[in-house]
Design a protein around this nucleic acid. Structure first.
Lengths: 138, 138
DNA sequence: TATAAAGATACCATACCAGTATCATTATGT
DNA sequence: ACATAATGATACTGGTATGGTATCTTTATA
């Protein structure tokens, strides 16, 4: 299982890198060199982040990306949502057709409980808190 | 995401059905009729459960499956392990090659924490506790 | 001894993940 | 003006896991 897929993970690392770089503009090229990620893939990811208002992009020579909002306000849960959709620990099992006892199903209740905990943890984990000590990708 | 895949889910339902049936032997055919699952797939699942010592099987005419251990001792976490391997919320991201800061990575620590909680919840959820009120598949 | 059950395996279709590959657009330095 | 270096948009692709089917073998019983 993967709570976090590659694109989300790359997004997190790229954002951390940008914050730490302290530059006002970082290009995909620089990120690729610094983080050793596949360039075209990372580009697609950053484009998505800027469509979603987390980065602001500048085209043209010397262009690149800057944070559009403060790193304390960017949450891992939010990034997961952007790249993977709403966080769900269980997709296709608890539906009327498959599970006739949806309302009373104890297993479903338990999983919902775990899911709720997971979501709340991930929604309170910000990019800036990741930078406290670890995640020193350089 | 799917914390529980189809085969694990079918296993859980089949076990619940067997417990509730109060018979000393239940055949795949009967389970298929009662639970509306694809027969050959369910068969494969029950075979696995009997290889793992959760069911005991009897071949030949009038054969079928019976519980090999008490339903209070069969845990959802255990069933997940059988069909999906060890419960892991994150597989391929936190490895040296991809994440150079494994030891100090705050994200990894948080996910490990969520994982631990998840595992402990699922390992304390037994088949018999699922039968308390819900999951009345009949 | 036919039949109805489980045991064992090989195979297959689909979807999702993790990317590539291209072409268009836009800003800058000279 | 214009080559260049950046992002924007989108179509395509290979690998793998999930959710099954299909087939053949073995075994017990009425």
């Amino acid at each position: 299982m993967n709570l976090i897929t590659r694109n989300t993970d790359y997004a997190i690392r790229a954002l951390c890198y940008i914050v730490k770089s302290n530059k006002n503009m970082v290009s995909v090229r620089e990120l690729v060199e610094g983080l050793k990620m596949p360039g075209p893939f990372l580009r697609k990811i950053l484009q998505e982040l800027s469509r979603k208002g987390i980065l602001r992009s500048y085209k043209g020579k010397n262009g690149g990306f800057v944070l559009a909002i403060r790193p304390e306000k960017i949450y891992v849960g939010e990034l997961i949502e952007i790249f993977q959709g709403p966080i769900k620990l269980q997709e296709h099992i608890f539906r009327k057709k498959i599970c006739p006892e949806i309302k009373s199903c104890i297993l479903k209740k338990k999983i919902d409980e775990i899911e709720e905990y997971t979501i709340s943890e991930l929604n309170s984990l910000s990019i800036s808190s990741l930078l406290k000590t670890g995640r020193q990708d350089k």
